[in-house]
Write a protein that binds this DNA or RNA. Sequence first.
DNA 1: TGACTGACGTCAGTTACAGACATCACTGTA
DNA 2: TACAGTGATGTCTGTAACTGACGTCAGTCA
Lengths: 193, 193
Amino acid sequence: MARWQPGTAARLQAAALELFATRGYERTTATEIAQSVGLTERTFFRHFTDKREVLFHGQHLLAEALLEGARGAPSEASPLDAVARALRSAAAFFPAERRPHSRIRKTVIDENPALQERELRKLADLGTTLTDTLRARGVDDLAATVAAQTGVAVFGVAFTRWVRDGEERAFEEIAAEVYGELLAQAGSAAPVR
Amino acid sequence: MARWQPGTAARLQAAALELFATRGYERTTATEIAQSVGLTERTFFRHFTDKREVLFHGQHLLAEALLEGARGAPSEASPLDAVARALRSAAAFFPAERRPHSRIRKTVIDENPALQERELRKLADLGTTLTDTLRARGVDDLAATVAAQTGVAVFGVAFTRWVRDGEERAFEEIAAEVYGELLAQAGSAAPVR
DNA sequence: TGACTGACGTCAGTTACAGACATCACTGTA
DNA sequence: TACAGTGATGTCTGTAACTGACGTCAGTCA
């Protein structure tokens, strides 16, 4: 018999989300989370740098999906078009089955500013890596930064709407709507004087 | 004679920035900051909810300037035009004299992820209040959100460039450049299929 | 004069982390 | 098959960010 059960991080994550959802984030200690799956506080902090991080583990997979989409764009595609492709390939990360889980997670995060900060940082990190990817395609600094940041903004708005109560459309559809709204607004905007 | 000197928060802020810049953020304790101006740790935490917050006090003034700009836009202006106005009125907050101070602050923040998270949150808060302002002008939810988030993205990029080493142009000029780049990219983008 | 307030100090407690070191099932190698 | 790693864990101990309760006292105002 194995000395330790595998998937420690995953078990901690599941336990943490459940405890956070029932008792609230602040009234749940790292020790409690660890003990609820038969581990020690110290072990918890070996798997997650932060108490907050337990809710955000695995985000790098989303980042990779996004970047893959951008990298896969034809070389003649504009930076913004590459970003649009990135958004489409991110959609695979938000299938309908995942929505209930995402909603519980959202509820927890919405209740705690510290968790919101962490989420914003993950989003911002997405922005910088996306910028780097665009630059690697030969896009100049300003264009890459603007396209990537815009893309992250669209992603953020789309994700927020996707997890909203009552929303049933697919992520891809919502993202297309948000992106379309951006193009429409920018298209009819007054030029810089 | 007054029992306490006025401007406690400002003195703590100045002391904190200096200590952070010399010793580094993490190796500076709240107690040290407080003692360096003859106060107690407890008093520090009465003025700032957080150790981080000492670097971000006063941000609400910037928010008010931004919102004032958006509110001042003519009623027939599009949401994005209102946002562009908000950006222009924010420029008053970044005169050339402020740049050296902003650069020191930036150095400190760049070194610490926790501080970056706080900065992102302030930016995000700007986004939500800007959204609310636009909605109060009668703009529908999607349009307001997209315009506001886009504006915040432009602001963020412009600010980052404004504090960059070697940069000497005024904030307003940089913001106009970034905003122009966005319009140019969106103008030539492929429409959503 | 005396109650009240506001900005501060003091003290004690909780908890998020982090370093150092021990443990021990498992693994690969001689 | 003996045996030296290795890696995930536990234990112990310490630091610093906060927080609540309460006391203090100069200035203010009825």
